[in-house]
Amino acid sequence: MAPGHDRPGRPAPDIPRRVGVNVRVDRDVCTGHGMCFMTAPEVFEDDEDGYGRARNDGVVDPGHEDEARGGAASCPERAVVFS
């Protein structure tokens, strides 16, 4: 595992199990690993600086909730926030 990827002090993301979720990537926490958009390209993309961001203004399309959860779980910085 690359340095900085093991974050034992950070809790696992709170990933809701419901339909109609919204997501965002906290730019203050994201360091640009790209795991969210590599894992869930239907939900996340990279911005002009290479940081992750949610597609569709953060609205997760019906049927892509599991992808959103997978993208969040893959983030080593826990930068994905659900609402």
Rank of each mutant, 00 (worst) to 15 (best):
R24V: 01
A12D: 08
G34C: 09
A73M: 14
M38H: 13
M1Q: 06
D49H: 14
P11I: 03
E42K: 02
P3V: 11
T39C: 02
R18A: 15
E48F: 14
H33C: 12
D26G: 13
V19A: 10
E48T: 05
F37T: 02
G9I: 04
E45R: 10
F82P: 03
P3N: 09
P41H: 08
G50N: 06
M38T: 13
G50S: 02
A73V: 00
T39A: 08
R78F: 12
A2E: 15
D26Y: 10
F37R: 12
F37L: 05
I15C: 06
A12Y: 06
F37D: 02
C75N: 03
E67N: 06
D61M: 10
R27D: 06
R78M: 12
P3Q: 10
A40E: 04
G63N: 03
E45L: 00
D61L: 10
A73P: 00
R27L: 09
G52S: 14
T31G: 10
R53C: 03
M38N: 14
G32W: 02
D49V: 09
R18Q: 15
V29L: 12
V25W: 04
D46G: 13
A54Y: 02
R69E: 03
D28L: 04
G9N: 11
A40V: 01
R24P: 01
A73C: 08
G71R: 05
R27Q: 14
S74M: 13
G20Y: 05
A12I: 03
A12H: 11
D61Q: 12
D6P: 03
R78W: 08
G71V: 10
D6V: 12
V43I: 13
